[in-house]
């Protein structure tokens, strides 16, 4: 049985107060459980998105590196390096926050980084088609990487909030509510005991009074 709360006097008033506290604690517990369930559901959803996103990122990057290797094999790594120097691109990333039940998760948006072959800025005549393929795949991979960063950070933030809420739910479920209930039972038992004591005392007083009256009549 759970511990009782120390320093509570066993009175009917306290019992009523405890009753109210138990009702409120149970309501709070149910509400927090709702929040925990919702958070877990969000968390599982984000975890699934992380898996999907990491799979597609790996796929895109593998393809891009394969094309890059092919391009280096055909043109030589120096030539590919030189092309990479003229095709630099600035990627604008907008990092903001989204709110999931009080948990701030990042919202990263980017402009479309995919460019046409002309926009990339290198000549077609002396370059292999593998360079085009690699550039296209890397551009696609960049967007996947950004998406992955967003969901991975969300997973971390949500996980810590799930743990925090779970701890609060467990504290109410296994410590606060049982303790309140045990104290209420203790007070109820103590009041019943006091009632029995009073009953016995009254009976003894009555017997003593009756014995006194009988003595007086005999005299």
């Amino acid at each position: 049985m759970a511990e009782i709360i120390e320093g509570i006097s066993p009175t009917r008033m306290e019992l009523l107060k405890l009753g109210r506290r138990i009702v409120l604690a149970e309501k709070g517990h149910k509400l927090l459980k709702e929040k925990r369930d919702a958070l877990v559901s969000e968390f599982l959803d984000v975890v699934q998105r992380v898996h999907e996103s990491s799979d597609s990122t790996n796929e895109k990057l593998a393809e891009a590196f394969k094309d890059l290797l092919m391009a280096q094999a055909v043109m030589g790594s120096d030539a590919v390096w030189q092309i990479s120097q003229v095709t630099g691109q600035e990627i604008k990333i907008d990092v903001d926050a989204m709110n999931i039940m009080g948990v701030k998760v990042p919202m990263i948006t980017t402009e479309d980084v995919k460019r046409s072959m002309i926009d990339r800025g290198y000549g077609f005549a002396d370059t292999s088609s593998k360079v085009d393929d690699a550039a296209k795949n890397f551009e696609e991979a960049i967007q996947e990487v950004i998406k992955l960063a967003e969901v991975q950070q969300s997973v971390e933030s949500l996980a810590s909030e799930v743990i925090k809420t779970k701890r609060r739910v467990n504290a109410l479920e296994y410590i606060v509510i049982p303790r309140l209930k045990a104290t209420a039972i203790h007070i109820r038992m103590r009041l019943a005991e006091m009632e029995r004591e009073n009953f016995t005392r009254l009976k003894k007083i009555k017997a003593a009074i009756e014995a006194g009256e009988e003595g007086a009549v005999a005299i």
């Binding site: 107060k17 109210r20 509400l31 927090l32 999931i100």
Partner: peptide
């Protein structure tokens, strides 16, 4: 007690 409970509900809806 009611005040504590109201605070809990408020904190759950702070977002």
């Amino acid at each position: 007690e009611s005040r504590v409970f109201a605070k809990l509900v408020r904190s759950l809806n702070d977002h």
